[in-house]
Structure formats: C-alpha cells, structure tokens
C-alpha cells in the first residue's frame, strides 16, 4: 500500500520519479507554509469566494422568509426594464466618464510639472495635494453639502459678491450630479500624482539626454518619452479609478439621498436601498451582478486600450 507509506528515504528513492508522490512529499515537507497562509485562505474562501457564488445564485432567486425560490431570469428582466436602474446606470456612467479621464489627465499634468521642481518643493506640493484625501468621504461630503447650501453656503455667497446666483447646486435635478462631480474635480488626485511622480523617477535619464542631443523640445520629450513610458501606470490608474468611481455611494447617501428625483442615484446607492430598505435581496443581487459584469467589461476595455509591453 504505497498510499499509507511514510515518506522515508527508501520510498523517496523508490517513487522519486513519480511526479504525484514527489509533490505529495514536498507538500508534507513544506506543511508550515500551508499553515501560515491558512487563515488568509479561509478568509478569502469565506468572505469573497462563497459570497460571490452566493451573489450569482441569489440573482436568480426571490428572497422569502420561508426560503428562497428560483425565479430564473425574472430579477434581471425586472432590473433591466426598471427606469430607476436605468437612471442609476446613466448617472454612474456619466460620473465615471467625466471623473476618470479628468483625474488621470490632471494628475499627469501636475506630476509632469512637479517633477522639475526641487525635492523639497515637490514634497510640499505632494503634501498639499494629498492632505484633502486623508479626510473620509463622509466628512468631505458633509463639508461640500455646506459649501453648496443654497442660502448660506460658501459658493452662493461668493457668487453673490460678483452679482451671480443663487444657484441651486444640489437642490435641482439638473445640477445635482454636476455638483457632485465638481466636488471631485476640484480636489486634486493626490495619490495619483504621487504614483506618477514615482513612475517618472524610474524613467532612465539617458533617454532624455539622447533626446537633448537630437535637439528635442521639452514638449516633444514629454510626448515621445514620458507619456509612452508611463503607460503601465496610466493603465493601472484607469482600471482602479474606473472600478472606484463605479462604486460611488457615500456622496449620494450623505449629500442628496439620491435625489432630487433620481438625479444622483448611483448604482451602489440603489443596491443599498433595494437590499437594506426594501429587503429585495434577489433584485439587489441582480443589480450587483450587472454592475460586476459592467465593471469587468470596462476593465477589459481599459486593458486593451492602454496595455503595452513597456520595458526599460
């Protein structure tokens, strides 16, 4: 019975060439490695893999106290024809289409300027750009709700000084989503700038020196050397910030409660309401699965669009 045999030297010699037994022996020898990662594996199985599978199952079920009932594609049919979900998708998509390129372009421009400054000035600017980002989304949303207040807010006060306004900012369905975007636009993407600066440091200097010899202008060098070599960073930021902006929730919850009307209802805000206000777990899961598929599709698109095999 080879299975029961302990991995003695003799058996090692005898079955040494059998790849399965070799692997088994190795696993026994390295058992500590598996013990060390066991907690992580358990956490990932229990709180990521199982929930994801359950989420896909729930999307085809209706939640009832007596037990879940399989309803086929009904949840998807309902969600995809639901005008509120359509509005939430449009709001989220518009937000993403504006915010992701804006954040990346601004970060790229600011980093391209900052890199020419001395290390000391650079770190000062990095801190100034990063600092607003350390406050939580709840806090930032509370402050901006105050800044946007139609009667007493800072913006309408400043505008009244130059004879404009008052603007409704968050209280009109035509401007509310724009106001939420403006809040993100005015905050410099501090983390992105740091990431770009770090990536720029890794570009070999001789590339620029060669370009200097050829008499290239600074803009030429930026366009032909810096930009292409930053593509991996841009790809990463595009993917991560797209995923992030598809998940926008806090601003909608704190500032507008999704309104007025459904003008600032985002997909995640809708999922939250469907699940934890209406307790429609099946519908909420269908919404979440659609969101997930959209995120995957957009990430694949980003990957195709920006991926390169940059080596330097």
């Amino acid at each position: 019975m080879p299975g029961a045999m302990s991995p003695t030297v003799a058996s090692a010699r005898r079955y040494g060439r059998n790849p399965y037994l070799q692997t088994l022996r190795l696993i026994r020898k390295k058992k500590w490695a598996y013990v060390f990662i066991a907690p992580d594996i358990l956490l990932f199985l229990g709180f990521i893999v199982v929930p994801v599978v359950r989420s896909f199952m729930l999307a085809f079920q209706e939640f009832r106290l007596s037990g879940n009932v399989w309803v086929g594609l009904d949840n998807f049919k309902y969600v995809l024809t639901d005008p509120v979900f359509g509005a939430a998708m449009r709001n989220t998509a518009l937000y993403t289409v504006v915010m992701v390129p804006q954040n990346i372009i601004v970060a790229l421009l600011l980093a391209s300027i900052l890199r020419h400054l001395s290390e000391r000035t650079q770190s000062l600017f990095r801190a100034a750009y990063y600092l607003p980002g350390v406050a939580s989304a709840v806090v930032i949303s509370m402050v901006w709700k105050w800044i946007y207040d139609p009667n007493f807010g800072l913006f309408n006060f400043l505008l009244s000084r130059i004879g404009l306004g008052p603007y409704p900012w968050l209280t009109s369905p035509r401007t509310s989503l724009f106001s939420i975007m403006l809040m993100g636009i005015l905050a410099a993407p501090g983390g992105f700038i740091i990431l770009y600066l770090a990536a720029m440091k890794k570009i070999p200097r001789d590339l620029y020196e060669v370009a200097d010899i050829d008499g290239a202008t600074p803009i030429r060098k930026w366009w032909n050397i810096t930009l292409p070599l930053l593509k991996p960073t841009t790809l990463y930021l595009a993917i991560v910030s797209t995923i992030g902006s598809f998940q926008i929730f806090t601003a909608a919850y704190v500032m507008t409660q999704g309104g007025p009307g459904y003008s600032t209802t985002t997909v995640v805000y809708l999922i939250y309401n469907t699940a934890f206000r209406d307790f429609e777990f099946g519908l909420a899961s269908a919404q979440a699965v659609i969101l997930f598929l959209v995120i995957v599709a957009v990430s694949v698109f980003n990957f195709r669009r920006f991926s390169t095999d940059v080596q330097y």
Partner: peptide
C-alpha cells in the same frame, strides 16, 4: 488567485455578506 479577488468590488458581495 488571492490577488485577482481584489478586482471584485465589495458591493457585489454585499447581500450575501450580510446574510453570512
């Protein structure tokens, strides 16, 4: 495999996590 799970947004698993 563990690294790839990062791509999955937490909102997708919100409902099942709540049930767990």
């Amino acid at each position: 495999t563990i690294l790839c799970t990062m791509m999955i947004p937490g909102q997708v698993t919100l409902v099942p996590m709540f049930m767990i």
